[in-house]
Write a protein that binds this DNA or RNA. Structure first.
Ligand SMILES: [Zn+2]
Ligand SMILES: [Zn+2]
Ligand SMILES: [Zn+2]
Ligand SMILES: [Zn+2]
Lengths: 141, 141
DNA sequence: ATGTAATTGAGACAAATTCTCATTTCGGCT
DNA sequence: AGCCGAAATGAGAATTTGTCTCAATTACAT
């Protein structure tokens, strides 16, 4: 598991420069929690490093994604959002109101192992999302 | 399971008009396969119904999503993409090259039932994506 | 055939993302 | 400590994606 503070180190380990803009972005991702959009990262990042440019945010988020240090997820709005960490991430997503519920265990380990062998694929993380109707939206049709 | 041709019927059954633009869009989704983006649906749809407007594509994709006849997924690029069907959808996604592999079985039924009860949530479908490095990208680092 | 509410197209608008390029910065190497 | 080259950045233009408005059209029940 690559948690929290390891993002910066993983960046350096992979041979990328540890610049001030990148540090700010990483710090935002670490403290800011999950489900941040690009523009939220930009806004929060500028509180740390005011010069921070939008292009740099996009470039860095893409880099971190390619390195597997963060992962894009799909919520209700148009913006791409990201979560940190390498393990699994799990949602219940209401298709009516967009509410998001999280759960922890999903038991995909065995399936992951099977698929890794079958496709010769190194699995680093996963996203499991269930779609449907939440408690509230079931009543007020 | 709501497969192929049933999309039109499900639309009618739900009380929506079966218009020419909608027919074109449904036809594109049925024949065009999965992972189509909004703009791809627009381009392909205009080959069937040239007047087709972008707004109508967005409106129809949203409608079909709300009805659970299609579902948005997240691939490598910025655009929202859609798949058809109600059940589960399963990917292996290479974080290097963006390659997508599909698999069929995932055994999430039991988990779905547990979550449905625990959260009082009506589950209609799910997306399971594994992220990692595909066979090709393991070699040419 | 008629009436009516649902649907549409067109384009303005807004938001999200990508691109370009001149300038700056990191980090290895004296 | 200072130099260098490659990597990274900022600024803003350009593009792409998604939303909204409204007058005109259309499906469908009657
Ligand atoms: Zn989450
Ligand atoms: Zn499944
Ligand atoms: Zn797929
Ligand atoms: Zn690959």
């Amino acid at each position: 598991m690559d948690t929290s503070k390891n993002i910066s180190e993983a960046l350096k380990r992979a041979g990328y420069k540890l610049t001030a803009p990148r540090k700010a972005i990483v710090q935002v991702l670490e403290k800011g929690g999950d489900h941040l959009s690009s523009s939220e990262v930009l806004t929060l990042g500028r509180q740390i490093y005011p010069l921070l440019s939008r292009a740099t945010v996009y470039r860095t988020l893409e880099l971190l994604t390619t390195l597997g240090l963060i992962r894009p997820i799909l919520l209700r709005d148009a913006a791409q959002r990201y979560v940190t960490g390498e393990g699994g991430h799990h949602h219940l997503l209401c298709r009516e109101c967009g509410a998001v519920f999280e759960f922890e265990r999903c038991g995909a380990e065995q399936l992951a192992a099977e698929l890794a062998e079958r496709f010769d694929f190194q699995i680093r993380g996963h996203l499991l999302e269930f779609y449907g109707i939440c408690r509230n939206c079931q009543t007020d049709d």
